[in-house]
């Protein structure tokens, strides 16, 4: 067999729809897949418009946070949109159980267009898994660093930011934190840290 390395054509870039509410992680995945030459469309927020996004952008691959409430929308598109010329099918390649297991552990779900070469899907999935994992370690490091700061100090800071951003008073800000904590099953100190992150991020961006 002759080697034709010098003339191997670049594979066509794929259109990837990324569905992730975690903005920092989404940016990491987008950057990495973009570097591989793929065209990445990000969708961050907003219910029920996912159908429209898939119809409009006709992605080859959808990468989605396993915890996203939009999972069921994609599941149903795979089964119901018979008139859609580019049906999205659930990536259930049982020839790659290791990749599937790694994806699950990292919290990555993928849906791909029927007929896409499995090797190309695997490569994309591996990039996404690596970034999801990296984000997880970043978050853990951040959490450790934050552990040194007293919860109380954090709650005060979060309350102050909430009062400013939500135009509310101190008891309202505290109730908001408490509700967030209960909703997520987290300690109020953890929630305060998240709130600080998000709101300080917003302020820096302005």
């Amino acid at each position: 067999m002759t080697k034709t390395t010098s003339h191997t054509p670049m594979p066509q870039p794929l259109r990837i729809l990324l569905v992730d509410d975690e903005t920092v992680r989404a940016a990491m995945v987008e950057e990495a897949l973009g570097r591989e030459g793929h065209e990445v469309i990000c969708r961050l927020q907003g219910p029920s418009s996912l159908n429209d996004m898939v119809a409009r952008h006709a992605p080859d691959v959808v990468i989605i946070d396993m915890e996203s409430p939009d999972r069921d929308t994609l599941d149903s598109m795979a089964l119901l949109n018979r008139e859609n010329p580019r049906p999205v099918v659930f990536f259930a390649d049982q020839h790659e159980p290791d990749t599937m297991q790694a994806a699950l552990a990292a919290g990555v779900s993928a849906y791909v267009v029927d007929g896409l070469v499995p090797g190309r899907v695997k490569a994309i999935l591996e990039v996404a898994i690596a970034r999801f994992d990296a984000f997880q370690s970043l978050r853990q490091e951040l959490d450790r660093a934050r552990g040194q700061l007293a919860d109380r100090k954090r709650i005060e800071r979060a309350k102050g930011l909430l009062m400013k951003h939500q135009d509310c008073d101190e008891p309202q800000a505290y109730r908001m934190l408490r509700k967030l904590a209960m909703d997520r099953g987290q300690r109020i100190g953890e929630v305060a840290a998240n709130v600080i992150d998000i709101l300080e991020g917003l302020e820096k961006g302005q």
Partner: peptide, 14 residues
């Protein structure tokens, strides 16, 4: 608490 039936299904299967 899970936010989607597909997630519940995948986590149960795994």
């Amino acid at each position: 608490r899970e936010s989607a039936w597909s997630t519940l299904r995948d986590k149960l299967a795994a």
